[in-house]
Simulated scan of single mutants.
Amino acid sequence: MKQHALQTAMALYQGGTLDLETAANQAGVTPDRLRRAVRRAGGSITATGSTVERISVTAD
């Protein structure tokens, strides 16, 4: 199950939906671990300091 969470976090990070720290937190890994996984998979790393719009999600 953790592998699925990591793959999902990688996709959300690479797509710009989540920043590195949030994606790593969602997957239960460190940001460094997520960054290495993205590099190993041949994905692109979002430059540090780039702006990512955060979306507030709430439930009823």
Rank of each mutant, 00 (worst) to 15 (best):
M1S: 15
Q3Y: 02
Q3H: 07
Q3R: 14
H4N: 09
A5V: 03
Q7S: 09
T8S: 07
A9F: 00
A9S: 06
A9E: 02
M10T: 07
M10E: 05
Y13T: 06
Q14S: 09
G15Y: 02
G15F: 00
G15A: 07
G15I: 06
G16V: 07
G16T: 06
T17R: 06
L18R: 01
D19K: 12
D19Q: 11
D19I: 03
L20E: 10
E21Y: 01
E21H: 09
T22I: 01
T22S: 04
T22Y: 02
T22M: 01
A23I: 05
A23H: 07
A23W: 04
A23V: 07
A24D: 01
A24M: 07
A24T: 09
N25T: 06
N25H: 06
A27M: 10
G28M: 05
G28R: 04
G28S: 02
T30S: 11
T30W: 00
T30M: 08
P31F: 06
P31G: 14
P31H: 05
D32A: 11
R33I: 04
L34E: 04
R35D: 07
R35Q: 10
R35F: 06
A37R: 06
A37Y: 00
V38Y: 05
R39G: 06
R40F: 00
R40P: 02
R40G: 02
R40K: 15
A41K: 11
A41P: 03
S44A: 13
S44F: 08
I45K: 07
T46Q: 13
T46I: 12
T46N: 08
T46H: 11
T48A: 15
G49T: 10
S50N: 08
T51G: 00
T51L: 09
T51S: 08
T51D: 06
T51P: 01
V52Q: 13
R54Q: 11
R54W: 02
S56N: 12
V57C: 09
T58Y: 14
T58C: 10
T58I: 14
A59T: 14
A59Y: 14
D60E: 15
